[in-house]
Design a protein around this nucleic acid. Structure first.
Lengths: 236, 236
DNA sequence: GCCGATTTGTGCGTATGTATG
DNA sequence: TCATACATACGCACAAATCGG
């Protein structure tokens, strides 16, 4: 029998999570059908489905219509959805939510700066150099370079063993790319400075120059923070 | 009419989010009843409920049985749930998931170190001093001090204007306090060192000594990381 | 290519909890 | 205090999608 919590759906949710733990399943593994879970938990399919919907929102399970239910990949997509919505809901007052996301990215990049420089010092990476060249080239033509930006930071984080940090940084990148279109966009000058800052980051890291790397990280976010500050001032 | 996505529930979810944005509602504000949403969106209660359940899991809405539905507080609770489950599911291989959480906390604390020291330099805080004294006292008697630990970091983060960073650090703290009971616990010596490190952090920050503060942060997490490394070695 | 067995998605009726007069 | 109105929670029946023979 399931735990005697306030609601049937909540009990089913706990029971399903406990089932995953006891079976030691991995992401992608198939799960019992909803009908089977109904019998084993002694609740109706509605309750099982509501529990499944909650777990699916957290990427703990993944449901496919007509196929079945599988163990989820436990990604940070829920965080992306939540923060993106937070960023779009709060502009009624100010762009403070999005600025906080960018400041968090800055803090994270500074927090791992030491490890990044240690990992890259003395190495060469043709792929990252190519991405920087593409970003500068695109910025000179007044175009954006979202995909190259994403790939650059992904390549940077791939040097570190900690996958959670990489996922969180990627999630935060995703958040402000989802929210930014709702606001005004950066000037060509800001775009050029951002592109150049990526090159400075790479050069400083390869040279093992930690202070220069930290400065390049700050310069990399400066244009974006300036845009957010300007937008904030306009709504005052 | 709502967006023409693959499923009715997904469309209802988008429509509800759009409704919140257009109405400019704030956390805690009441929302239309499920019956009303059914009529306005042209779908059944089931679909509305599944959408609501997904949004509730992300803390975008809050549902109270017999009372109604309200705008959620957009907290990081979904992240806590997801990461805590991730930490409990992965030990089948290793305690790598929990170690990644602690390393992320370390990176964050290092990333905001400069701002924290700048904010605390030259000030005195009786409340934080009292918490440090309590932690040391409890550690000498071999007891744990989870609540004081939480309050100390909360007081530290309250000095910064960025609320998102504070919420994320608190969320990560919540994660490893939820997961730790499933593993072995720290030794009395580790507990004493952790308590002392809090005092060193406070002293260094008040003195405006950034390098010492950074060292104290690392020392603060060192015992916990050692426990996780030991557990990891045992399962090898 | 079709058919049917299986699985998740949707609709509607009823039960239960909550606040208010 | 209790009754009533109205909210969400639950259970069952049917539709839509998928996969294998």
């Amino acid at each position: 029998m399931a735990t005697r919590r306030s609601s049937a759906a909540a009990g089913a949710q706990d029971a399903i999570k406990e089932y995953l733990l006891q079976e030691g399943l991995h992401p992608g593994d198939p799960m019992p059908t909803e009908t089977v879970l109904c019998e084993q938990l002694g609740v109706s399919r509605s309750s099982v489905r509501e529990a499944m919907r909650t777990l699916a929102a957290l990427d703990i399970v993944e449901v496919r219509h007509g196929t079945g239910t599988f163990v989820g990949h436990l990604s940070l997509d829920p965080l992306v959805n939540g923060l993106a919505f937070r960023g779009m809901l709060s502009p009624g007052d100010d762009h403070v939510a999005l600025r906080e996301v960018v400041e968090l990215r800055t803090a994270l990049d500074q927090g791992i700066a030491e490890q990044v420089v240690a990992a890259i010092r003395g190495t060469v990476d043709d792929e990252m150099a190519r991405l920087v060249a593409e970003m500068i080239d695109l910025s000179e033509r007044g175009e954006s370079f979202a995909e190259q930006d994403r790939a650059f930071h992904a390549a940077l984080l791939a040097k570190l063993p900690n996958r959670l940090v990489a996922q969180l940084v990627e999630a935060l990148w995703e958040v402000h790319t989802q929210v930014l279109p709702r606001l005004g966009v950066a000037t060509p000058d800001d775009i050029a400075k951002t592109a150049a800052a990526h090159g400075d980051m790479l050069t400083a890291a390869q040279a093992g120059d930690l202070p220069s790397y930290r400065a390049a990280v700050n310069a990399h976010y400066a244009p974006l923070l300036r845009v957010l500050a300007r937008e904030s001032a306009n709504t005052d």
